[in-house]
């Protein structure tokens, strides 16, 4: 079963063909979701009773945060597949994900900072979640720095995989230790799916934006991976 899977679905060629086929559909889906999320979020969603129109930056900030963490998760899974099963495509996925993840982490920090200025009265505060996202950014940058100085492909992939896995295992520990240290951030609004503390008119555009951001990540990831495969051939 495993052997069959490895033979048929994991070769680089299979990925290249499938992703070429998928890309137009992904772009189509992205355009629809993104335009719905943007228009509904910026124009039709009601203004927040406390934060006024300022809350609308949420439609960029929250999806960026989701991606910042989601991409590290993707990297950790591909790192595991690289290190244990030595799957070539997973290693390519891991090293192509890192710069995208770093940019989204940066975007999450910048939009959060712009949101924080009118709401908290300061650009930056040493709050638990801000700090752990900043540490996440440093983990991404460390990974990229390590990748950029090792020249042998095999060693580069395996070293990156190890450091990504160590970072992923440590991330929850770092997160909870930072919460222990200091917290001020408002509670998450949409993780409580049973009783969301957010109105549906605000929620649906947000979910559409999160989906659109994830599809955007996959579009960029596929293009980068295809480029990397072509360069290696």
């Amino acid at each position: 079963m495993w052997h069959w899977l490895k033979q048929n679905f994991l070769p680089v060629k299979f990925f290249y063909q499938t992703s070429t086929m998928l890309l137009p559909w992904l772009i189509f889906l992205f355009v629809i979701l993104f335009s719905y999320g943007m228009i509904a979020g910026l124009f039709f969603a009601p203004a927040d009773y406390q934060q006024g129109d300022g809350f609308r930056i949420m439609y960029v900030h929250v999806p960026s945060c989701f991606l910042a963490m989601g991409i590290y998760f993707v990297m950790a899974v591909s790192a595991f597949l690289t290190l244990v099963f030595r799957i070539k495509i997973a290693a390519i996925c891991m090293s192509c994900s890192a710069p995208i993840g770093a940019w989204f982490t940066f975007l999450a920090l910048v939009t959060g900072s712009i949101w924080g200025k009118p709401m908290w009265g300061t650009w930056w505060i040493w709050d638990a979640r801000l700090t752990s996202v900043l540490i996440l950014l440093f983990l991404y940058l460390g990974f990229i720095a390590l990748q950029s100085v090792i020249y042998s492909t095999r060693a580069r992939e395996r070293a990156g995989a190890l450091i990504a896995l160590v970072g992923a295992i440590n991330l929850p520990i770092i997160h909870y230790s930072v919460i222990w240290w200091n917290t001020l951030h408002q509670g998450p609004s949409i993780s409580k799916f049973a009783t969301p503390s957010i109105a549906p008119a605000m929620l649906y555009p947000l979910l559409a934006m999160i989906a659109a951001f994830f599809i955007f990540y996959f579009i960029i990831l596929f293009i980068r991976m295809q480029n990397k495969i072509l360069r290696a051939i």
């Binding site: 540490i135 983990l139 460390g142 720095a145 390590l146 770092i174 930072v178």
Partner: peptide, 8 residues
């Protein structure tokens, strides 16, 4: 650079 974030 690699290790310091893990020291937090």
């Amino acid at each position: 650079i690699l290790i310091m974030p893990l020291y937090v």
